[in-house]
């Protein structure tokens, strides 16, 4: 099971990095969120995948699942939720302001701008 999930993590990483390397801003945002999903999956896999009960008192000590990675993942999801949302809003505003979602064009405009100011 761990091997399969590891492969999935690898695929998610590859897709995420591919999306980040494209020029479109929206794809980059999607790429970052895919990457974070990959990392969360990785975090879950590192603590061993198994079915068991929650580590609460009075539930039997056998076969409990380590709760820490899940707490970490939840925290990380919350943070990434915030960042992705902010990134999206920012991309939208940048699109309104700069009239493009193409990173390449943004850069060429900035270098033109720099050339003018010199």
């Amino acid at each position: 099971m761990e091997v399969i999930v590891a492969v999935i993590v690898g695929i998610l990483f590859a897709v995420g990095i591919y999306l980040i390397l494209t020029q479109d801003l929206l794809r980059i945002v999607l790429g970052t969120s895919l990457l974070t999903h990959a990392v969360h999956l990785l975090l879950m896999t590192m603590a061993m995948l198994k079915t068991g009960s929650a580590p609460l008192l009075g539930r039997g000590a056998e076969d409990i699942v380590d709760p820490l990675p899940q707490a970490l993942i939840l925290t990380s999801i919350v943070i990434n939720f915030g960042i992705t949302a902010f990134f999206l809003v920012l991309s939208y505003r940048a699109y309104q302001k700069l009239d493009t979602t193409d990173m390449e064009r943004m850069r060429s405009e900035s270098s033109r701008h720099r050339g003018r100011s010199q």
Partner: peptide
């Protein structure tokens, strides 16, 4: 929210999101 700030912020966020990942 000037144009320059938007461009730089997009780069800045992307770099930091990657490193946080």
């Amino acid at each position: 929210g000037t144009k320059r700030q938007f461009r730089e912020t997009l780069h800045y966020i992307l770099i930091n999101v990657l490193s946080s990942t």
